Simulated scan of single mutants.
Amino acid sequence: MQYMLLIATSEAVEAAMDQHALGEIIASYGPYTNAMIEAGVLVGGERLRESTTATTVSIRDGKTQILDGPYADTKEQLGGLYIIDVPDLDTAISWAARCPSAHIGSIEVRPIWPM
């Protein structure tokens, strides 16, 4: 079954962090991603630019509304994602717990609903 690991961290917390500590977290993504590849579970993944670069589109009363930036004002922003193919939720949770950003943010594990 495929799961998406949604990586959410606070951009403000990251900006305030010691740059060496933040650099260590960023560098640890290489081995983490390689471990997924070696285990044969990685389907795909990408990191995202800052939330200030987002554009949110909605339709209200038949009119397109465009909002620069993320739709919701939240403490954490979506920073990236992985799609993994694993046997069950417990395995997906195990991979999420190994994600480097789990130490400074949260990893939402969500099953993919095939179309």
Results as ranks from 00 to 15, higher is better:
V57A: 05
E24W: 00
Y32Q: 04
Q65L: 15
K75T: 14
A102W: 02
Y3T: 03
R98P: 02
L6M: 13
I93W: 11
Q77V: 14
I84F: 09
I26R: 03
M1Y: 12
E11N: 04
I104C: 04
A72E: 15
S10G: 08
P114N: 07
V86D: 13
R110Y: 05
S28A: 11
A72G: 13
R60L: 11
R60H: 13
V13M: 09
A96S: 09
A72K: 07
E38Y: 06
E11K: 01
G69W: 09
K75F: 05
R60N: 11
A54G: 07
H20D: 14
A12W: 06
A92E: 10
H103P: 02
I26H: 01
L48S: 00
Q65V: 15
Y29Q: 03
M17L: 05
I93S: 10
L6D: 12
A39M: 02
M4S: 12
Y82Q: 14
S58A: 13
W95V: 08
A102Y: 03
L89F: 12
G69C: 01
A39T: 07
T74P: 09
G105I: 00
H20T: 13
A35K: 03
T64M: 15
W113F: 12
I66F: 13
G45C: 02
Y29G: 02
L78W: 12
T9A: 14
G44H: 05
T33A: 04
E24L: 08
T55P: 00
N34E: 15
S94W: 05
I112C: 05
A97S: 11
V109G: 01
G80M: 06
A12I: 05
I107D: 01
T56R: 04
L6A: 14
M36E: 00
T33M: 02
I37A: 12
D90T: 10
E50V: 15
Y29H: 15
P114M: 04
R60G: 06
P87V: 15
I26M: 06
T55R: 13
